[in-house]
């Protein structure tokens, strides 16, 4: 799908997702990211609205000056000209102490409360129908960082009423559930960025709600591609289309080889 925003800036959904995600990151904050879209979003933010965003990788890379997109969360790009090359415990414990503002995650399934599944499909844990990698660091980051952002393609097989396996905590089964489970106060899901919309969570119900629709996307389209009842925020807006400069930076500086935006 190629979209035009009326200003004749053509862009693809992946490019828009990276740009939307980047805009959500405040300057001077810290973010634990993985490879792919999250990493591209952090690099984009550093080159646009958040030059002082500090990026960490869970395997131990602190504040690299990323020369190119890493392939692995632990490859040498993740600490290239960094400030520290350390350990997984050090990064996770920085999160646990309350110094990591954002984390960026994905998953095979997400539900209305922002819970993620990256472990398995099926109902027998010992004999999964489809086995996926598991938590990796996702559960830890969503438990320990202040705000969890999710970037994913929007379709009803991913956006499900109930995840087959709750790998990584969102708001669990609703208001008060994180606190009840013993997760740290003040942490939790923040935004979901897809190729159709940007979503947040209702303050009281803790259910996902649409905050802004991407240009040309209708609410019906979003509902059709969501497998649960998705609320709509008061004051629903349209997502600002990508600007010319945002696209130039993304294509020329962040991902010139198209590792992420070429997908």
């Amino acid at each position: 799908m190629i979209t035009t925003n009326g200003d004749q800036h053509m862009y693809n959904p992946m490019e828009f997702m990276v740009i939307c995600a980047a805009r959500l990151l405040e300057d001077g904050r810290t973010a634990a990211v993985g490879t792919g879209v999250p990493c591209a979003a952090a690099m984009q933010a550093q080159r646009t609205t958040a030059p002082n965003l500090m990026v960490c990788f869970e395997a131990g890379g602190v504040a690299p000056q990323l020369p190119t997109m890493p392939i692995s969360v632990g490859d040498s790009r993740t600490f290239y000209r960094g400030l520290m090359a350390t350990s997984m415990c050090e990064i996770m414990e920085t999160c646990q102490r309350g110094m990591m503002d954002y984390t960026f995650l994905g998953g095979a399934q997400i539900d209305a409360y922002g819970n993620l599944n990256s472990s398995m499909i099926g109902d027998d844990y010992a004999r999964p129908k489809v086995r996926f990698p598991g938590s990796g660091g996702a559960n830890d980051l969503a438990s320990l960082c202040w705000r969890t952002l999710v970037v994913t393609v929007h379709d009803s097989r991913r956006f499900v009423e109930k995840v087959d396996f709750l790998t990584t905590p969102g708001f669990l089964d609703g208001p008060g559930a994180r606190e009840e489970a013993g997760l740290l106060p003040g942490t939790g899901p923040y935004r979901v960025i897809t190729d159709l919309a940007v979503m947040g969570y209702h303050d009281e119900t803790k259910r996902m709600q649409v905050l802004s629709l991407h240009p040309g996307v209708t609410l019906d389209q979003v509902h059709e591609n969501t497998g649960f009842e998705l609320a709509v925020a008061d004051g629903l807006t349209e997502t600002d289309p990508p600007g010319e400069e945002e696209l130039r930076i993304l294509r020329e500086e962040v991902d010139p080889n198209g590792y992420v935006i070429g997908r």
Binding site: Q96, S143, L144, L166, A181
Partner: peptide, 13 residues
């Protein structure tokens, strides 16, 4: 001890 994994199927398994 740690402050992670609580409330999830990951913890349950």
């Amino acid at each position: 001890p740690g402050h992670t994994a609580l409330g999830t199927d990951t913890m349950r398994h």
